[in-house]
Design a protein around this nucleic acid. Sequence first.
RNA 1: GGUCGCGUGGCCGAGUGGCUAGGCAGAGGUCUGCAAAACCUCGUACAACGGUUCGAAUCCGCUCGCGACCUCCA
Length: 495
Amino acid sequence: MQNQLKIYNSLSRKKELFQAINPPFVGMYVCGPTVYSDVHLGNCRTFTSFDIIYRYLRHLGYQVRYVRNITDVGHLTGDSDEGEDKISKKAKLENLEPMEIVQKYTVGLHEVMQMLNNLPPNIEPSATGHLMEQIEATQKIVKNGFAYEVNGSVYFDVESFSKQHKYGELSGRTVEDQQAGYRTLTSQDEKRNPEDFALWKNASKEHLMKWESPWGIGFPGWHIECSAMSSKYLGKQFDIHGGGLDLKFPHHECEIAQSVAQNGEQPVKYWLHANMLTINGQKMSKSLGNSILPHELFSGNHALLDQGYSAMTLRFFMLQTHYRSTMDITNDALKAARKTYKKVMNGLRVIKQMQYKEDENIEKNELLNAQIRKFIAGMYEGMDDDFNTAKALASLFEILKKINSLHTDSISISALENEVFLEMKTAYLDFIENIFGLKEEQPAQIELVEALLQIYREAKQVKNYGQVDAIRSHLKSVGIVVKDMKNRIEWEYEE
RNA sequence: GGUCGCGUGGCCGAGUGGCUAGGCAGAGGUCUGCAAAACCUCGUACAACGGUUCGAAUCCGCUCGCGACCUCCA
């Protein structure tokens, strides 16, 4: 598999040429959500970023196995190993079975993912569906001497691990650094050292979600599920592991340690982290009261929003920012994104209908042909540069200008080489639909619009401007703009 | 306090030692019954200060500001 794709690897802190372990196959694991509440915009950003990465890898010809888990047990509130299970807590609060909570929010997640046109992962494994694998992984770590049991709980022994292996490489921390940030252990604590983390936790009688294990009745720790499930479906070593930047430490650091503790080798070749979301320059968080749910964004039903913005507007907005930069949500930025999104989609409709026409009387424009080829290459260069969608879009807009110029006949299509025209059409379609994953949101009732437009044309012929203006304003009220061009009359989506 | 990142024109947002993306908004123009759309032209920006260099927004140092992680979070 030949390519120029470079990926920023969080582990090396450098852009590296992407070389699949087993081409043409690529294994990609992305940390999914804990399904104890509605999926939030930050989740959406991360999953959309990896959706585009997934789509691009496929476009390049890789056969990608994309695994994104559902965390439905083991993720605790509060201090990492002492809080309440998030799912259980919510279940008690709503007086439901924990699995009802899981089902409810998993369905909600899928719904939003579909609206955003994110492709479903190839495997979406849940933690409760892989208890055996987690128990086995824990046993192996204990056997290798990197974990210890206390009162029916098993903890990863960071100290003994770090004597033989590196711990903290991904996040750039040393064990000593971390100790500085921890409170001291009390005599009540089961852990030998504060940086140790739970692989398996003993469950009290009241605990809702618990299972048999070699250490008694309990439940798995949060980090072990990803190690267990990623290795089950992608092997001990796989190509890409992604997730939100906030998972880098401790979650991903723990995953590396767990895998190395089992097999002695690094589990992941390329670690990718998507950056956080801010709103009006501030971190989006519940405590600040500025978090927005996808449905609130779509409906505009939120104090910080002037109006609603569609799922595709959000997706386009995300494309304009590189996945490793923080993305700031503002009304102004969203409005600009909506307008540009529609412009791009109007271009898509135009190019889909456009046909090449040979005309011997018209000379080929070499400069134009060269320019178009350069812009197509520019889109690929952008994506090859660590999936830089913002960079790719710059070239896409240049192509869009050419498409519009061809459409309005300010450039003759015959001035293009047939081959260049086809390349341009294919590339524009591929990028919009297959790579960026954009789609039309309000497919208009084309027959009706066309019928009205016919009346419009006739009224215009006889200079019945009253009727002309009436039709125009009617169509505008449903989001359709009439375009009076030099030689014809058409419609497009309002921007 | 520890670790790390960022600061780009009115707004958003790429980039990166010389060739100075792109989008939105704004101005002018072409077209048009009027408009809209589309296209063309226009803005010479990179937090402050010092240094390295023939040359820095881009490298180094320092200052200021913002943010992330270290504690639930994608």
